[in-house]
């Protein structure tokens, strides 16, 4: 098999950009990660193993660049809009529970046929809007866990946060996203 030429590599730019943007949720950082990926690919064309497709190979490089970018974003003091309190009083969700810690009147409702939503374009738009509302670091940790399937230890190590921080952020993401989807999608009929 032949090694890909530069033009062939560049053809994947859009795909890589969407891939990075989805994970980083930051346009400048995504651009940079893709740029670095293409540069690395051009310099290391001989490292392209013929058994994988160019796309798989590039995505593999991009994944590493994304981790670097995530680490950088997470350390940027301007991104730290979400609290990193250890162990959670997690008072931001208190209003959902009554004094004894049980769900109040706003408890989760049963979602009718959620699988069907996956087929609907509008659902993905609503989901995206909900995800956009998450604080940046929360969104990033959630994407690392749920989209990329990283283990907690890996996330902690990459972002230099404790396992407790990590589980608190994931909890916040799940609580917020389910609430947002229930309000804006699954509860629409009533």
């Amino acid at each position: 098999m032949t090694t890909p030429d530069d033009r062939q590599l560049a053809e994947f730019r859009d795909y890589l950009l969407r891939y990075a943007l989805y994970r980083l949720r930051d346009e400048a950082a995504a651009e940079e990660a893709v740029q670095d990926t293409l540069l690395a690919a051009i310099q290391a064309k001989s490292g392209f193993a013929a058994q994988s497709s160019i796309k798989t190979w590039l995505t593999g490089i991009l994944k590493h660049k994304i981790i670097d970018a995530q680490r950088k974003l997470c350390r940027d003091p301007f991104q730290l809009d979400d609290k990193l309190d250890d162990e959670g009083e997690l008072s931001d969700f208190d209003s959902l529970f009554d004094k004894t810690g049980h769900w109040g009147s706003d408890g989760p409702r049963t979602w009718a046929n959620p699988e069907a939503a996956l087929e609907q374009q509008d659902f993905w738009r609503v989901y995206e809007e909900c995800a956009q509302r998450l604080p940046k670091r929360t969104a990033m940790v959630f994407a690392m866990r749920e989209s990329l399937g990283h283990e907690i230890e890996e996330i902690c190590q990459n972002l230099d946060i404790t396992a407790t921080n990590c589980s608190v952020l994931l909890y916040r993401a799940r609580m917020s996203l389910r609430l947002c989807l229930e309000k804006n999608w699954f509860g629409r009929e009533d």
Binding site: Y22, L118, Y127, F142, E146, S147, G149, R174, L181
Partner: peptide
């Protein structure tokens, strides 16, 4: 939510 994220890309 996990399923959504795994399917999304």
């Amino acid at each position: 939510l996990r399923k959504v994220n795994q399917q999304k890309p």
